[in-house]
Amino acid sequence: MVHEPPTHTVERSLRATLGAKVIAGVDEVGRGAWAGPVTVCAAVTGLRRPPDGLTDSKLLTVKRRNELSGVLTGWVNSFALGHASPEEIDELGMTAALRLAATRALDLLPVRPDAVILDGKHDYLGGPWRVRTVIKGDRSCVAVAAASVIAKVRRDAMMAELGVDYAPFGFEANAGYPSPVHRAALEELGPTPLHRLSWAYLDTLPRWQHLKKVRETVEAGETGEQLGFDF
Rank of each mutant, 00 (worst) to 15 (best):
S69G: 15
V71C: 05
V71K: 14
V71L: 14
L72A: 14
L72W: 13
T73P: 02
W75E: 04
W75I: 09
N77T: 14
F79H: 13
F79W: 10
A80V: 02
G82M: 10
H83I: 00
H83S: 03
S85M: 10
P86Y: 02
E87P: 03
E88P: 13
E88H: 07
D90A: 10
E91V: 08
L92F: 13
G93D: 06
T95Y: 10
A96I: 05
L98R: 06
R99K: 12
L100W: 05
A101D: 00
T103W: 03
T103K: 06
A105F: 05
D107S: 13
L108K: 15
L109T: 12
R112K: 15
R112G: 04
P113T: 11
A115Y: 03
A115L: 05
L118N: 12
D119Y: 00
G120K: 14
G120W: 12
H122I: 14
L125I: 07
G126K: 09
G126E: 05
G126T: 09
G127E: 14
G127K: 15
P128M: 08
W129G: 04
R130Y: 06
V131N: 09
V131E: 06
T133R: 12
G137Y: 09
V142G: 14
A143V: 07
A143C: 15
V144M: 07
A145T: 06
R155P: 00
D156I: 01
A157C: 01
M159V: 02
E161A: 01
E161K: 00
E161H: 00
V164I: 12
P168C: 13
G170P: 04
